[in-house]
Design a protein around this nucleic acid. Structure first.
Length: 1125
RNA sequence: AGAUCCGUAGCUCAGCCUGGUUAGAGCACUACACUGAUAAUGUAGGGGUCAGCAGUUCAAAUCUGCUCGGGUCUACCA
């Protein structure tokens, strides 16, 4: 038996997807899509590893759709696209999850639970939801190789990381330094910003704030200041909400472009006349306008209404480098001590910093490098040294006089605590060193565990010197194709310009250990480098094992006993921490306790996924850098950065050539999806209800991937109905008739010139579509591609081609014209399914398989193994596409006229008039005349030319052409043209140019510089669009009315046929009771009617028992329709 | 605090790069048609201070600046 195209019973995308999935599994479709391209040019894709300790969400579906469609597309373009999957398995979320599950806190680790057990728990938790992830991967149709994924906690993976780190170390790009971090003295631990962002950590508190007065040093560079003041004493005013940091002050920072003023005034506490410097914008905070230039003698010694006089103004830049006297000198912060810590430090100077604002304070920022990140950075730049006069318990160190050993905040809940900040402020007041002291309410972070304020504190950390290669990174970034471009230039480019060194250190448990060992003294403390401390960075497991053995030999005893037999088995804590190595000078070395930032894990995946350079050297070479990666835009400074940084630092290369960053998925109201709001969309549910294809199509076509997407299930429903529904209908239509006629594309391919106009048109459109879709996909614009396909299927294929060609499929014999129609429609379907396959992999493959099962035009079994269609330019006929557009417009206009006068389409009309403005237009119209006539049921089209004097024309300037030439005279010309009479216009047309007088200047217009359209046909009802105008003759002659009746009758009988469940080919016998004009109509068109309804007999009788009542133009007829035989 | 994206009809989005005189489409709503594809389709209708202000220009949704609103990222988050 002959193979038939499958006819569906209804569009059920989820069910179709189930079938396709089963076929993919059975046929190993994914594996084949890779193996079939063996030897082809590789297209390299990197999978950004998800963390499987959380459930997949709808936002994962969008980025994975994006990745998947690019990979499928490139495969169809002939590339071999391997997609190695991966899992991100380290990091804080996993630790926090485990802690929550076990009901413990960080302090309990090592006490209630050993690090070994803890890490074992983490390792378990890491792939907790792997099943769910595998499930969504499968159901959404994401093709990625999960048989051999890279997993970041594996020894091989970590070994590559160690190798990378040791390479960085060798290049001097990995170094230890202090950084300023949030620190909780009450808890005795550093806090990550993650912890700082816990709800409730930022609280409004009232702190004692002080405006301190720093006495300027008089020397050559500051002479201008003292000259302006006319005194020997000038103060810089600086504000702080943490007076306890004042003893550690080493600098004052001003904004380079801020204007500062020198003011003569009176200290409200000591009532002495003083000269102070502060930002001009902030004068109002300290002085009342009415006291400006007030009489100093009249001051009442009450601290109120202090007079002031401005003596001069300067920019911050002018103040740079000026010196001042230390505010609170003690033994512990003497310049000698400063230089003990930082040998060549040059403190107590005015510095410039971009971070200074005039929002608060004085515009001069008190700078204590140990206690603020900005302070530290600017301090380092100017080399002012660093003082940390507070210990890790949060109290002052010795050598600070009356403040020694006092807690800077009440960390111990001491009832009798006296605020040291107040005492410092009081001291300043007494010494004429405070200008204003007050309680200040602000938001300040607190430790989420102890509820005590944190302080920013310098802690040791390891850094990658990314700044060393900043320029190279910027340069390489310019070669990357960013989608959207602005992310690369703006967000990322900017980030690179302002990059700081990468702080790698994390004081955690479950992560990649930093492979650095440092020598320790007899007290087991690390020996400072300056005191002969040594360190080593391990770059491989082999090297570590060698060092383990060497240390055991040199140090003897039980050293590394546990590791001697089999070497190290697990590169995690606590095992690595048990290893003692030996320094070149024979001292024992211990590992620094730090783990590394998990972002290093993922940024190193190009190398670590292949265990490079220990294995797969050739594979790596083939797969670096990536041609394409894609993730959410939130990864810009995350994965996109770490990939780029590592590749640039170690390989002097980009890590990826194209990167697409997709936006967020919001709920339909534009809110972020969160569990708290209960507006998260379950991807499993969505896919089960609407199918993965509709979901994918919606996600891709609704908005550009990089725009935020307001996710609305209604939108998926619409996609399902409109796009998939239409395509499904088109396929069903094809299958229905192709099965009847046995079309299997067995006949020779009919050459284009032998096909009718409409076939050539749809094929031309199809090739234009292919061209545009290919361009869009090559440009990583799947949204454009999807919308183009949608448009084609809906507007062109279904609502024009199929609608106009319906009769060709069911009328007449199986011969040339019918075969043309089948071949054409088949080719459209076959091409469309391939064009859409990357985005909608299931339905496209289903249709592809149904079509190919009958025709065997492709040797591959899946659309995803086929090649992407190639546009054939020679089949593209622009003028044909243009005139078909004109046919559509004309039809639409005529239908609207019919509507206006209430004449239904079934009623034939005699003629339409179309004014033609030039010969070309008529040539085009003649070619599509038949289409228009049958579409709108009109017998003839008449073309009007101006010579008949019928058309009223309208002229307007072609602004684009004229604008440049005329400039300001444009308006006058426009007005002049509006006054043109019909005679003016025709003279213009005849002569090809026209001379106008504008402001007594001649302006010569060319015919090409104006647009002439037909406006009206006097005496007719017209409709127009652009250059096209139509007028409809609405006279219904008796003949036309008869034909209309006949058509009505046919329509009613067809309905009865259908309602009675007759087959398309059944012949029938019809009896009808008709009289008068209706009978005349039916008799006149008897042959036509019989042919249309496949009636062997059409009998007029005087009465019928039973039968059906039908109504034609308000007259009821009785009829009976019987199947013959 | 800095960076960046977005703001066009009730909703989802085109148009903006490259300025051109009536700002489009789909959905939704209303009415009328059509129907051998029917979970479709056509026609018509209402619906817009193109977020606001200022500037450049003969001409601004489009270019520039500022403001407002929303989102995201960075400041040891993963």
């Amino acid at each position: 038996m002959e193979l038939k195209y499958r006819e569906f019973t209804g569009l059920n995308l989820p069910a179709i997807e189930q079938e396709v999935l089963a076929a993919w599994t059975a046929g190993q479709a994914f594996e084949k899509s890779v193996s079939l391209r063996e030897g082809a040019t590789p297209f390299v894709f990197y999978e950004g590893p998800p963390s499987a300790n959380g459930l997949p969400g709808i936002h994962h579906v969008i980025s994975r759709t994006l990745k998947d469609l690019v990979c499928r597309y490139k495969t169809m373009q002939g590339f071999q696209v391997k997609r190695k999957g991966g899992w991100d398995t380290h990091g804080l979320p996993i630790e926090l999850g485990v802690e929550k599950e076990l009901g413990i806190t960080k302090e309990d680790i090592g006490k209630k639970i050993s690090v070994e057990e803890y890490n074992a728990k983490c390792r378990e938790a890491v792939l907790r939801y792997k099943d769910k992830w595998d499930d969504i991967t499968r159901k959404m149709g994401y093709w990625v190789d999960l048989n051999d994924p890279y997993i970041t906690f594996k020894n091989e993976y970590i070994e590559t990381l160690w190798w990378l780190l040791s390479e960085l170390y060798k290049k001097g790009l990995l170094y230890e330094s202090v950084s300023i971090q949030p620190y909780s003295p009450a808890a005795g631990t550093g806090l990550s910003s993650h912890e700082l962002n816990q709800p409730g950590t930022y609280k409004d508190v009232k702190d004692t704030s002080a405006v301190a007065m720093f006495r300027a040093t008089k020397d050559a560079s500051s002479a201008f200041l003292f000259d302006a003041a006319g005194t020997d004493e000038v103060f810089f005013m600086a504000w702080t909400t943490t007076p306890w940091t004042l003893p550690s002050n080493l600098g004052l920072t001003v904004g380079p472009d801020i204007t500062y003023v020198l003011v003569k005034t009176i200290n409200p506490y000591t009532h002495q006349t003083v000269h102070v410097v502060l930002a001009q914008n902030l004068l109002g905070k300290y002085f009342k306008e009415e006291n400006k230039d007030a009489d100093f003698a009249a001051y009442a010694n009450d601290g109120k209404n202090i007079p002031y006089t401005i003596l001069g103004s300067f920019t911050g830049a002018q103040l740079e480098g000026l010196r001042y006297d230390q505010l609170l000198p003690y033994e512990a912060n003497s310049p000698e001590r400063v230089r003990e810590i930082t040998p060549d430090a040059d403190p107590f100077r005015i510095l410039l910093g971009d971070f200074v604002t005039t929002e608060d304070g004085t515009g001069i920022v008190h700078t204590a490098p140990a206690f603020g990140a900005d302070d530290y950075r600017v301090g380092k730049k100017y080399n002012i040294g660093i003082l940390t006069l507070v210990d890790r318990q949060g109290k002052f160190v010795d050598g600070l006089g009356e403040f020694s050993n006092r807690y800077v905040k009440n960390y111990k809940d001491d009832k009798d605590y006296v605020d040291v900040n107040v005492d410092i402020s009081v001291k300043l007041k007494k010494e004429n060193r405070a200008f204003k002291v007050e309680k200040y309410e602000h938001s300040y972070p607190h430790c989420w565990r102890t509820d005590k304020p944190v302080l920013y504190y310098p802690l040791d950390a390891w850094f990658i010197r990314t700044t060393a290669l900043r320029d190279r990174m910027v340069e390489l970034n310019k070669t990357i194709n960013w989608k959207p471009k602005s992310t690369g230039e703006g967000r990322f480019g900017n980030w690179l310009e302002n990059m700081v060194d990468w702080n790698l250190s994390r004081s955690r448990f479950w992560g990649t250990p930093l492979p650095i060992w440092k020598s320790v003294g007899s007290d087991n403390q690390f020996i400072d480098e300056r005191e002969g401390g040594e360190e080593i960075c391990i770059g491989s497991i082999d090297e570590l094992n060698k060092e383990i053995r060497r240390a055991a030999e040199v140090l003897g005893g039980d050293t590394n006993k546990a590791f001697l037999e089999n070497g190290i088995q697990d590169l995690h804590k606590p095992y690595v921490d048990d290893i003692i190595l030996v320094s070149p000078s024979g001292k024992p070395m211990r590992r620094v306790p730090d783990l590394i930032d998990v972002w290093f894990d993922s940024g190193a995946m190009p190398y670590a996924q292949w265990h490079f350079p220990f294995e797969n050297k050739e594979t790596f070479k083939q797969a670096f850098p990536a041609d394409f990666i894609a993730e959410g835009v939130d990864q810009t400074r995350g994965w996109f950065y770490t990939l780029h940084a590592i590749a640039c630092l170690l390989f002097d290369s980009v890590a990826y050539k194209t990167v697409v960053s997709n936006g967020l998925v919001l709920d339909k109201n534009g809110n972020k999806m969160s569990k708290r709001l209960g507006n998260v969309v379950d991807p499993f549910d969505t896919i089960e209800r609407f199918g993965a294809d509709a979901t994918r199509w919606y996600l891709i076509t609704n908005a550009s991937p990089w725009d935020n997407l307001k996710f609305d299930l209604e939108g998926i429903r619409e996609v399902q109905r409109k796009f998939f529904g239409t395509l499904y209908n088109t396929y069903q239509f094809f299958a229905l008739y192709a099965n009847v006629d046995g079309f299997a594309f067995r006949e020779a391919y009919i050459q284009m010139q032998d096909r009718p106009e409409i076939d050539r048109w749809i094929l031309s459109s199809l090739h234009t579509l292919t061209q545009k879709v290919t361009a869009a996909m090559d440009d990583y614009e799947p949204t454009q591609a999807g919308r183009l396909i949608e448009d084609f299927v809906d507007e062109h294929l279904s609502n024009w081609y199929v609608r106009l060609c319906r009769r060709r499929f069911w009328k007449g014999e199986y011969e040339h014209d019918k075969i043309c129609a089948y071949q054409t429609l088949y080719e459209c379907l076959e091409t469309v399914v391939r064009l859409m396959a990357p985005v909608a992999p299931f339905f496209s493959d289903s249709l592809f398989r149904q079509l190919n099962a009958v025709t065997n035009r492709f040797t591959v079994e899946s659309v995803h193994h086929a090649y992407f269609p190639k546009a054939d330019e020679s089949l593209i006929d622009r003028s044909l596409e243009e005139r078909m557009q004109m046919a559509q417009d004309a039809s639409s206009l005529i239908l609207s006229l019919r509507k206006k006068v209430n004449i239904k389409v079934r009623q034939p009309l005699q003629r339409v008039l179309i004014p033609v403005l030039d010969a070309g237009m008529k040539d085009q119209l003649v070619l599509i005349e038949d289409l228009i006539r049958s579409e709108v049921n009109v017998k003839e089209i008449e073309y009007l030319t101006e010579t008949e004097g019928f058309i009223k024309k309208k002229i307007k300037p072609n602004f684009i052409a004229l604008g440049k030439r005329l400039g300001a005279r444009m308006k006058a010309v426009s007005a002049a043209l509006a006054q043109f009479s019909q005679e003016d216009i025709s003279r213009f047309e005849k002569e090809g140019q026209y001379s106008l007088l504008i402001d007594s200047e001649p302006v010569i217009l060319q015919i090409s510089e104006v647009d002439i359209t037909s406006e009206d046909i006097p005496g007719w009802t017209v409709a127009g669009k652009g250059r096209l105008t139509v007028a409809l003759d609405i006279t219904i002659t008796p003949e036309l009315e008869q034909e209309g009746n006949a058509r009505e009758f046919v329509n009613r009988i067809q309905k009865i046929r259908k309602d009675s469940g007759f087959e398309l080919t059944d012949r029938i016998v019809v009896k009808v009771v008709a009289e008068g004009s209706l009978k005349t109509s039916l008799e006149a068109f008897r042959d036509y009617i019989s042919a249309e309804i496949l009636a062997d007999e059409l009998e007029f009788v005087s009465d019928i028992s039973g039968g059906t009542d039908i109504e034609i133009n308000d007259i009821v007829l009785k009829t009976i329709v019987l199947k013959k035989g």
